[in-house]
Design a binder for these strands. Structure first.
Ligand code: DGT
Ligand code: MG
Ligand code: MG
Ligand code: ZN
Length: 571
DNA sequence: GCCGTTTTCGGCCCGACTGTTTTCAGTCG
């Protein structure tokens, strides 16, 4: 079985961790981490590239050595360097790096001097008072480590973006009440609209800072203050979420926002560009020698580097700086570009509102159209429609459309793709519909070849115009099924099928990197809510976020088209 | 280990907080 991109990335990450603990050159380690990140974001299949004999050194961060290692991993599943490092160091040790406060140096000492290999063993060593005796460690460090391990062992993983939003809103409101506070902005991965966030990063400007930091650490949900200084503080909330606050003077707002929005890789790339121009960038501004030349606004920071402002969603060091320098940044799709929604459910199946209520909510958003796309009969739990109920619903929609002016309900279905790639309803049932959305809701465990074959077959069905939630993943709950997305996207193009970017907060599927791949292959993406009630249209903003992260412009998105053009696409 | 309209060798982002340190290493953002 060909090796997956993520598997190669995992090998490089493990090599980086082990080299780190061994005290290897920091830039060599960074090279492995950069290569891993590139592979995780790569939309094409690395194994296929190897097989086709492509020149891997054209990939960013891959030189002759790492290209060789990728070929070795593709051929054997592992590589000599990793196997050697594993022999030199017990397997579990790298997990210790995940514990906040334990970096490579301390992990090396714990392992060498105490033969500690697992978080549980660290906890025991701390409780036995064996850590404080180590040189470079002390009583306080031991206590911090103990607390950090306990938190690590009970910690939830990364939080879905929408969930983090609830915490963020409450915190921002709390901070706005602090004396002397000027502005409060959520930065970090939250501002970049990543599908999940590891923590919350809050930027605050104030003339007198101490009061703001006091106010922050005094927030009622704070469980533990992890650190606190004059310009920054970190806390852990009940429930485990970490929140970092950064405080700067108002004149540094732009530089600090750039810094705290990241990503780290984007920051490094920006700062390298600054170096090349004899400038220095930090969170206080852009400097030439001792003179500050920018920093009040993000616009001023980017301008000082000869760049237009780069939208936060693009700041991942995926080529956005080169694009900006060349004046080729995309004009990203925005919420107001949407003219309708192509995936929604009603109380006829597992939704909670009537067709009329859903239509009224869509109209209130300024939409021109809404497709009603219930589940098909196989989804028994959801009361999926059979041919007869689907026809009856179509008649009701016809009746509603006759009454409504300036708005169009589209007759649709979210039909199951069966294991063999056939659809869950006969062609006769699909014939009268405006839009057929096809979706995988079962047999996620099929092999890559079988799953790909299954979906390609569905895409070839002449009535199918939209592939719903193409990866099938549920964030934090279910991994994507194994499928060759390159082939899926090519097939979609061949048959004039659009790919859905499902905006449900647990899905956010199309994944951002696949979004970008669809764009490159000129396959239109439909940003849909999959709303099961009228409130869920609000989720569309998360779909917009993922689309923007995938570099999509208005014209790359199917449901920015006016009704007439949409209908043309739907044939 | 990667990379180059200044370089094929010598650089590689920059700063805050903590604890144990007698001047700064380690970790993190
Ligand atoms: N210049 C620079 N900035 C950094 C570095 N590490 C983090 N930052 C900045 C950019 C990050 O987006 C921002 C917040 O750090 P986080 O660790 O919270 O990362 P981020 O929010 O991007 O992702 P997350 O979802 O929290 O894992 O701080 C660094 O090593 N150098
Ligand atoms: Mg963060
Ligand atoms: Mg953070
Ligand atoms: Zn649905």
């Amino acid at each position: 079985m060909p090796v997956r991109n993520l598997a190669v990335a995992a090998v490089f990450d493990e090599i980086a961790d082990r080299l780190d603990i061994q005290g290897a050159n920091a830039f060599r380690i960074r090279a492995y981490r950069n290569a891993s990140r590139m592979l995780q974001e790569l939309s094409g299949d690395i194994a296929a590239m190897v097989e086709q004999g492509r020149d891997l050194t054209e990939l960013r961060g891959i030189g002759a050595d790492l290209a060789g290692k990728i070929r070795e991993i593709a051929a054997t599943g592992s590589c000599e360097l990793l196997e050697r490092l594993r022999r030199e160091m017990p397997p579990a040790v790298t997990e210790l790096l995940q514990i906040p406060g334990l970096g490579p140096k301390r992990v090396a000492v714990l392992w060498h001097d105490l033969d500690v290999q697992t978080p549980e063993q660290v906890l025991r060593a701390a409780r036995d008072g064996r850590i404080r005796a180590l040189s470079g460690f002390g009583e306080k460090t031991e206590r911090r480590i103990e607390s950090a391990v306990a938190a690590h062992l009970s910690k939830q993983r990364r939080l879905p973006l929408a969930t983090a939003g609830h915490y963020a809103d409450a915190l921002v409101e709390h901070l706005r009440g602090a004396p002397g506070v000027d502005r409060v902005v959520v930065a970090g991965s939250y501002r970049r609209m990543r599908e999940t966030v590891g923590d919350l990063d809050l930027l605050v400007t104030a003339r007198r800072g101490n009061a703001a930091i006091e106010h922050f650490t005094g927030y009622r949900e704070v469980e533990e203050v992890l650190s606190r200084g004059g310009t920054r503080a970190s806390v852990r909330l009940r429930g485990g979420l970490q929140v970092d606050l950064r405080l700067v003077a108002p004149e540094s707002f732009g530089a600090a926002l750039t810094y705290f929005t990241g990503s780290k890789a984007h920051n490094i790339a920006l700062r390298r560009r600054a170096q090349e121009r004899g400038l220095k960038v930090n969170e206080y501004g852009v400097f030439r020698g001792d003179t500050r030349v920018a920093g009040l606004t993000e616009e001023s920071v980017y301008r000082a580097l000869g760049l237009p402002v780069i939208p936060p969603e693009l700041r991942e060091d995926r080529g956005e700086i080169d694009a900006a320098a060349a004046g080729r940044l995309p004009e990203l799709v925005a919420p107001e570009d949407l003219r309708g929604d192509l995936h929604a459910h009603t109380a006829a199946t597992d939704g909670h509102n009537t067709i009329e209520e859903m239509a009224a909510a869509a109209r209130a958003l300024g939409f021109e159209y809404l497709a009603i796309t219930e589940h098909s009969r196989r989804q028994r739990m959801a009361h999926g429609l059979d041919a007869q109920r689907l026809r009856a619903q179509g008649e009701e929609i016809d009746r509603l459309n006759r009454q409504a002016k300036g708005f169009r309900l589209l007759k649709g279905i979210e039909v199951d793709i069966l294991e063999d790639g056939n659809l869950d309803l006969p062609d006769s049932a699909l014939a009268g519909l405006d839009i057929v959305v096809a979706a995988v809701h079962s047999r996620f465990e099929l092999s890559r070849a079988q799953q790909t074959e299954r979906i390609l077959r569905a895409l070839a069905h002449p009535r199918v115009k939209l592939l719903a939630h193409p990866s099938g993943r549920l964030i934090g709950q279910r991994e994507p099924y194994d499928v060759d997305m390159t082939q899926v996207i090519r097939k979609a193009r061949e048959h004039g099928v659009s790919l859905e970017s499902n905006a449900h907060p647990e899905r956010l599927d199309l994944i951002d990197t696949h979004c970008r791949m669809a764009k490159d292959e000129r396959v239109p993406v439909a940003i849909t809510s999959d709303a099961h009630d009228v409130a869920q249209f609000a989720n569309l903003r998360f779909g917009i976020g993922q689309a923007r992260r995938g570099w999509l412009e208005r014209d790359d998105v199917l449901n920015t088209r006016p009704l007439r053009e949409l209908l043309k696409f739907l044939g």
